[in-house]
Computed example of a mutant assay.
Amino acid sequence: MAGSASELARRLGEDAEAVCREYLSNGHRSGNHWIVGDVRNTRGRSMHVRLKANAKGPAGKWVDEATSEFGDLLDVIRESCGLVEFRDVADEARRFLALPRPQVQGAGAQRHPAVAHGSPDASRRLFAMSQPIAGTPAERYLAGRCILLGSRERSLRFHPGCYYRDLLTGETLTLPALIAAVTSLDGQITGLQRTYLSHGLDPRGPVGKAALADPRRSLGRLFGNAIWLGLQPGTPVPVMAAGEGFETMASLRTVMPALPVAAATSANHLAGLSFPPGCRRLYIAADADAAGRHGIERLSQRAGEAGILALALRPQLGDFNDDLRHLGPASLIAWLRDQLLPDDARLFLPSG
């Protein structure tokens, strides 16, 4: 499907210099980069936007050397314009690209005027409208990924007909979705991640991700918060694990069910993750994605500044879900045993 956020970013990247001149007007071109102070269009030289694709990556990608932030041109539009909701970011991108704005169905219609789209309130309402995952396609989807969490994980729900909006055309689909709550350390829902699932005619058959360009969508207030598995609000967490992807962290939770884990949903959000009270050791799940390493480095730095020992956990394959599915839980447990500190291995891994 061509209506994904990645497609909008790609189209912006085709004319990256024009985007920079429009939204980062305090910068200037230098070779193949646009140089500016930061993504909010401050004067300076620490942020570099790649103007033409090369061996290092596609056009439009940027990094701020001062803060380790990085992203694409949609992030530039959001931050430089002071936008909050992604719908507004997509609308502004379409305006710049001279694409037609999506038509609103029904003159003057507004489905939920009391709650702003993408707000924490909207996230809490969607979560409340969902159901526990037991016996649902969401549970079968996770089982198909060898992720076995059970009903103890209250942050996971299932919605049988969740809206999916094509960011390029505005077309709306209705699809089943795994709903994962993003929460603050006090347990308040601040956002959601939706994993859209494929329709299955067999109610007992396998379930996969929907055939979409971006089958995962997040909304709400994400920075500093995470999809927490095993967190008891207000309880000290001396040892925890954190990473970018939900399935990566859920895979670790499957083989270490007593270890609290946090999935930050993106590398930028991983870099800004808030630490729970009493945290002394933080295991950071790495993967093969180069972009994620920026988030890992920044999180490690912040942990050290807070007096927390940060240790990396590295998979054998692309990520820990690949390890769990293709190598099996016994192999993953043995691999982790060599990376955990001995006391943590005895505490969180099965004996033998």
Rank of each mutant, 00 (worst) to 15 (best):
M240Y: 11
A59V: 08
S80M: 02
L299R: 09
G82Q: 13
A18K: 09
Y23C: 12
H294D: 03
L332D: 04
M129F: 13
E247V: 11
T235K: 15
S198P: 02
A263K: 11
R221L: 07
E171Y: 02
S30A: 15
G118L: 02
G118P: 08
A98C: 14
G295A: 01
L327D: 00
R145E: 07
H28Q: 04
L317E: 08
G60N: 06
N268P: 03
A330T: 10
T169W: 04
E153S: 04
R152C: 12
T172E: 06
L259E: 03
G278Q: 01
I179K: 03
S266P: 11
R125C: 04
E92Y: 14
E7L: 04
P206K: 15
A55M: 14
P315S: 04
H159C: 09
S300L: 07
D38S: 08
R302G: 03
N225Y: 02
A262L: 06
A181R: 05
T172Y: 01
C279R: 04
R253I: 12
A211S: 15
G170I: 00
P238Q: 14
S6L: 11
G60W: 10
R165L: 06
D322V: 06
A138G: 09
N41Q: 10
D322C: 07
I296R: 12
D166Y: 12
V207P: 08
L219Q: 14
G27D: 11
L313Q: 00
I35D: 01
M1R: 03
A143P: 04
A90E: 04
A210Y: 01
G220W: 03
D121T: 10
L212H: 13
R145Y: 00
L299P: 08
C81H: 10
A345I: 15
M256F: 09
F246I: 13
P342A: 03
V255G: 02
A250I: 01
A93F: 11
A116V: 11
L324R: 01
S80G: 10
D88Q: 12
D166S: 07
L51N: 15
A303F: 09
V76C: 00
L229E: 12
R221Y: 09
V19I: 08
S155R: 13
L24A: 08
G37L: 13
H117K: 15
D322A: 09
P132L: 05
K209N: 03
G108K: 15
T174D: 02
L51E: 05
A114N: 07
V237P: 06
P203I: 10
R337C: 05
G60H: 13
A114C: 09
F348M: 07
R152P: 01
L201P: 08
V104E: 14
L192N: 06
Q316T: 05
C146Q: 14
S300T: 15
L51I: 11
D344A: 07
T169R: 05
G108R: 15
S274L: 15
T42Y: 05
H269W: 01
Q316K: 08
P132K: 06
E17I: 09
A291T: 13
G27V: 02
R101G: 03
A290Q: 10
A226V: 03
G44F: 00
L324C: 13
I227H: 15
A310F: 08
A180C: 15
